[in-house]
Write a protein that binds this DNA or RNA. Sequence first.
DNA 1: TGGATGAATTTTGAATTCTTAATATCTTTC
DNA 2: GAAAGATATTAAGAATTCAAAATTCATCCA
Lengths: 227, 227
Amino acid sequence: MSKIQHRSLYLEVADRVRDLIERGDLAPGERISEKQLCERFGVSRTPLREALKVLASEGLIELLPNRGARVMRLTLKMVKDTYDLMGALEGLSGELACQNISDEGIKAIRALHDEMLRHYRDRNLANYFQVNQKIHEGILAASANEVLQEMYSNLSQRVKRVRYSKKMTDDFWHRAVQDHEHMIIALEARDGKRLGQILRDHLCNKLEAVSLAGVIEEERTLDAANA
Amino acid sequence: MSKIQHRSLYLEVADRVRDLIERGDLAPGERISEKQLCERFGVSRTPLREALKVLASEGLIELLPNRGARVMRLTLKMVKDTYDLMGALEGLSGELACQNISDEGIKAIRALHDEMLRHYRDRNLANYFQVNQKIHEGILAASANEVLQEMYSNLSQRVKRVRYSKKMTDDFWHRAVQDHEHMIIALEARDGKRLGQILRDHLCNKLEAVSLAGVIEEERTLDAANA
DNA sequence: TGGATGAATTTTGAATTCTTAATATCTTTC
DNA sequence: GAAAGATATTAAGAATTCAAAATTCATCCA
């Protein structure tokens, strides 16, 4: 039996706009027309504008006074900064997880790890990614720090658009799997410092993959668009 | 000549509500009446409600559907979690600062450090705190990571209410100053890993001071209030 | 033809109004 | 006298309306 719960309209709208941004239906730098979105969602401007304010404070859009909103443009520096931050947070999550995770929890992560290895051997990138993410989410959850989880998911949301670059070189993939081998060893030994360090460096690798993929627009693009 | 700039009303309101919460004029757990605040600020409900939504997404208040807002209640666990997070962020700021800070920047921090030591010797707690904060802000700024700064200031805002406990034992104070001695050495050596580690542990000490001061309400208090 | 000026239109900002849900009060009944 | 139900009151959610700013577009002049 599902709980009878009337979520506020502005939350619903915020979710849907987040979706649109993530899927790329709203392009970075694109001006967001209030009227257009109102019609699309079938709501009045009040809840829509409330949602936009929330999204702005989440860093997904920017609000230009008297000129409406636009999807936040990602510069290479912003993404780098965000990844540095996410690395620090993942590192912390690893440390805390080693303190707080149950033995069953470790077993569950181990099972995911083995499953991921199978997908790696099969060269099944999609499944690999999925299980990979579950592992990181598992460690994050095991940290038992809700504030950390909240911050992480906000940061993650911001860079989601550039995250999954389809072209993953064999070299990077191999290194990522190696990282995970070290991670599971550190976790099973409950060596928090070590797991933290690995997780942090692990994310740096991911950033390399992203910036190489060239998904992000360079600063000069931004200047051009602003002019 | 100052720029003619009309900040949006909702931003103004959000700032003022933040202030009220920080100063304790709005008590934790206290129900926030929209009408009352509207009258107090002389604005209509629309910008006020937009401000409340932003504050909710910042974690300062919570929005109960159809029941208005109330100031977020801080539990001991929440503060602990937040401090863990802030520690990780300070650690990162130290690492990045060592990479990015200029020689002049280091000299400026050194000057602040020496000033702080003077205040310590004079047992001038207020001035000590002020300069101490400037040092941490200086390192944060030197990290040259705006996303980090934004996140840090958000977290800092959340726990500002409990932060400055007046009673600081000599022992804690001594340890804090020692930490700072090590910090400045690491910074001048541009030893990022070390500075990061010190900053992280440094904040842990602060948390001890806070939790000992007993400013925060325990979980049971929360339950009682919710019942 | 190109740029500047000013009216018309559009869009955003904010207040008001309307609607619905929650809370308090008052009956009524046992 | 207490509990359950009905009604009144209040407050929140959302749409509409009004006001102000920005944008567009047409006109005028160099």
